[in-house]
């Protein structure tokens, strides 16, 4: 612990490391004898420390419960939002159909697929996403519904 390679953050940290290592390596009998010499009562001290630990444990448990409750509430909110985003494939096809019809009516837009009923559901959703990214999709999700 006192080697030159020891990267104690501060010089006095090296002394603390050295002292701590000595204490950790001492025999139980030596530790207790020294503590009693200094007027300490190991049993009483241990009882006080255990009480402090149990108090800390209670506080941490309460904090964990509060955190778990907050997490569960956030999870429920996320689940509700997720359900709200579920896509109705019939609506999606109607929207794409409306865009294709608009393109065919001479808007200058050329679409590779002319008939949405030839496309898979995934292709329909993919095309809608691409059109949205290109800014060519009406923001109104109701658009195209019959």
């Amino acid at each position: 612990m006192t080697g030159k390679n020891d990267k104690a953050a501060r010089p006095l940290g090296r002394l603390a490391d050295s002292l701590a290592e000595d204490i950790l390596n001492m025999s139980d009998a030596e530790v207790l004898a020294e503590f009693r010499e200094g007027g300490g009562d190991p049993e009483q001290h241990a009882a006080e420390m255990r009480a402090m630990f149990e108090k800390g444990l209670l506080a941490v448990n309460k904090a964990r419960l509060a955190s778990a409750k907050a997490g569960a509430a956030a999870g429920r909110a996320a689940a509700r939002a997720s359900v709200g985003n579920i896509v109705d494939i019939a609506d999606a096809r109607a929207r794409l159909r409306a865009v294709i019809e608009h393109a065919n009516s001479g808007s200058g837009l050329t679409l590779a697929a002319r008939k949405e009923d030839e496309l898979s559901d995934a292709d329909v959703l993919g095309m809608l996403e691409e059109l949205a990214e290109l800014g060519l999709l009406d923001d109104d999700p109701e658009a195209g519904k019959s």
């Binding site: 002394l15 603390a16 002292l19 701590a20 204490i23 950790l24 001492m26 139980d28 530790v31 207790l32 503590f35 300490g40 190991p42 049993e43 001290h45 241990a46 420390m49 255990r50 630990f53």
Partner: peptide, 20 residues
């Protein structure tokens, strides 16, 4: 493990705490 610490262990921790 912490609940199982002996009086000697708690004395060691007290001393280490004092050093740091």
């Amino acid at each position: 493990a912490i609940r199982g610490l002996s009086p000697t262990d708690w004395v060691r921790l007290k001393k280490v705490a004092a050093y740091y």
